[in-house]
Structure formats: C-alpha cells, structure tokens
Amino acid sequence: MDDLPLQKIAISGATLASIIQRFSSSPGDVDGLLFGNVTHVTPSNLLDDDIPDSSSTRSDSSTLVATITSYFCSGTVNSFYDSLGRLDLPALSRSLGDRGPGRSLIGWFIGRRKTPLRPSMREFAVSVSLSSKTLTLNPSDDSLNSINFPPCVFIVFTSPLSDQLIHTHEHRAFQFRRSTGFFEPKSMDVINIGPAFRGHYGAFCPNSPFPWLSSELRDSSMEEDTMNHMRGILKEQRGLDMCAEGFEVGRLSRLVGSDAANYTSELEHLYGKMLAKLEGLARLVEKSSAMVLEQVSLMLMDNVLLY
C-alpha cells in the first residue's frame, strides 16, 4: 500500500495507563511493540447534492486513523534490535507470536527518563527497518485489520527533565513516512477519557443488582450487635440534635440556592448561641478553678499553723 499520512492516532485510556505503569515501574528504560489496526475515516460533511470527483475520492481514501488496541513491553531496551538499529528478526518473531489473532503490528514505542520528546538516530534506524518489513510482519489474512499498513507509528514516553513534587509522564506520537524519510508529529486521542465521553456513563445502571440476604442466613448474635450499634448511633444523634437546636444536618443542603440567605442567617444565629454557651461554660470553669485554688491555699495554711 502507498505511504499515506495518518490523520491521528487513537488509544484507549486503559492501554495508555498500562504502558505508563510498565514504564514507571521498570528499573530503567523500556521499549515495546504496538498492535492495532488502521482504518479509513468516514467523512461526516457529505451533502445530498455533492458530486464526487476524482480529487475528493483520493482525499477521502487518504484519511486514515491508526488505533492501538494492545502492546508488548520487553522491560528493557534493544529487545528486538541492536545498537545500530538493525532488527533482530528471531527476537521480533518471538514478540509477535504472543500478539493474538486480529492484531497487526502498527509500530513501536520507547520509554526513557529525563530525555527530550524527539526520536534519536537509533530510533530512526529502527523505524526505517520496521517500515520496510510490511508484508512479512503483517500477514494479509488478518481479519480485523482492514488495511495492510506499514508499522510506522512511533511513540516516545519520558519523564520531566527536572524533579517535580507530582510524578508525571509525557508522551508524543509520530508517523515515520518512508516517502519523505522523516517523522511527522501526530495527535494522539485517548478514546475513553475526557469531557466528550462523560455522557457514556451518565445513564449507567447495574444490570445485576445485589441479591437480598435471606433472613434464614442471619445470625442472632449478629442481629444483636447490629441493634446495639444502631442504639449507640441514635443516642449520639440525639445529643447532636440537642446542641443543634432543631437545625438538623438535612437543612444544610438548603444553603445552596436562591434561599441560601435566609438559612445562612439562621445558621449564624445558631453559631452565636453556641458561642454564648461556650463562653458561659468557660466562666463556670474559671470560677470553679478559682475556688479549687482557694481551697488548696487554705489547706496549706492550716498545715503550716499545725506545725
């Protein structure tokens, strides 16, 4: 197939998080292979009166998206190539043997700490070697891969150059173009993270609710402990209600909204009364402390007179 440009690279949030976890938990730099598929993007701006011509057809057919569905991480570097970037075909074949059916090799990645987000000369050589092995690395009978595309995707993972309090990772995706011999930066979409995908979870409801526990399975001692616990909670709640003077916790939700001003004044009045009670209690403690000191002084004076 021709060396066509990719529109973007897509990856699931779970796959991206797994790669970052493998990289962050490894003792050193790592590399690995990326599996997935490359598909045509269906244009969304077609009109009924559009007359397709040859130029638009070519433009639509060249709009491609590479989707990363899984990966293989070696746990080290130079796992399927040497220091000069030449492929180690036996090692590469062993890594490809565990990819599973319907997963084509679409590229590779590397994770290196505190380095710039740009390919090195060795990574350039590895990408050249991989992109020239299209037919041997991706068999044509792959059912899930609609396009026999060269493995030209390359992603760099790295950590910040300076130490930070928050542990972060950075990444950047590229497509190696055989026709130009250069890396082209590509946007990478995380397909199930972000505001656009929050609506997928808004209407979530469980399909299998938890079953009710049969009364026959309940133990009498467990029920007694539960009742004692509930009595303790009710006793504590009554004590709190006496302090709150009718301003229960449920009314706190009304502090947000158009009527918040009325309830805010009530709450301030309640706090004022509580502070008055605390002030009275502090004065009682002060008086009792003075009386205790006076009693102690009298006892000391009596002891001195006796001796």
Rank of each mutant, 00 (worst) to 15 (best):
Met188Trp: 05
Phe157Leu: 11
Pro160Phe: 11
Val153Ile: 13
Ser179Thr: 14
Pro150Ile: 10
Val128Lys: 06
Leu161Trp: 06
Pro116Lys: 12
Gln175Gly: 05
Ser146Ala: 13
Glu170Cys: 11
Pro150Asn: 12
Asp141Asn: 11
Val128Phe: 01
Leu161Gln: 08
Val190Asp: 03
Phe154Cys: 01
Phe154Ala: 04
Ile191Asp: 06
Cys152Gly: 05
Arg172Asp: 00
Leu130Thr: 06
Phe182Gly: 01
Thr180Ala: 10
Leu137Met: 11
Phe183Ala: 02
Asp142Arg: 06
Arg178Trp: 00
Arg178Thr: 05
Arg122Asp: 07
Asp163Ala: 15
Ile155Gly: 04
Pro185Arg: 07
Arg172Val: 09
Arg177Leu: 07
His169Pro: 00
His169Ile: 07
Leu117Ile: 04
Lys133Ile: 10
Asn145Val: 02
Phe157Ile: 09
Ser140Glu: 08
Phe154Gln: 01
Leu161Gly: 07
Ile147His: 04
Lys186Thr: 05
Val153Arg: 03
Lys133Phe: 14
Arg118Cys: 11
Glu184Ile: 10
Asn192Arg: 05
Leu165Ile: 15
His169Thr: 13
Asp141Lys: 08
Thr168Tyr: 08
Ser162Gly: 10
Ser179Ile: 08
Phe183Ser: 01
His169Phe: 09
Phe182Asp: 11
Asn138Leu: 03
Ile155Phe: 03
Phe157Ser: 06
Arg172Cys: 06
Asp163Trp: 12
Pro150His: 09
Gln175Asn: 06
Leu161Ile: 13
Val190Cys: 07
Ser132Val: 03
His169Ser: 14
Gln164Ser: 14
Phe174Glu: 02
Pro116Trp: 04
Leu165Val: 15
Ser179Pro: 05
Ser132Gly: 08
Ala173Leu: 04
Ser162Phe: 12
Phe149Leu: 02
Thr168Lys: 14
Ser132Leu: 10
Ser120Met: 05
Gln175Tyr: 05
His171Gln: 06
Pro119Trp: 00
Asp163Pro: 10
Leu137Ile: 09
Val128Asn: 05
Ser187Ile: 04
Phe124Met: 13
Ser131Tyr: 00
Phe157His: 09
Thr136Gly: 11
Thr168Asn: 09
Asn145Glu: 12
Arg122Trp: 04
Ser146Val: 07
Lys186Glu: 09
Ser140Phe: 11
Ser129Tyr: 03
Leu144Ala: 13
Glu123Thr: 00
Ser146Asp: 12
Ile191Thr: 15
Asp142Glu: 13
Ile155Ser: 03
Asp142Met: 06
Ala173Cys: 11
Lys133Cys: 15
His171Phe: 15
Gln164Met: 14
Asn138Asp: 04
Val126Asn: 03
Leu130Tyr: 05
Glu170Trp: 13
Ile166Lys: 13
Phe154Lys: 00
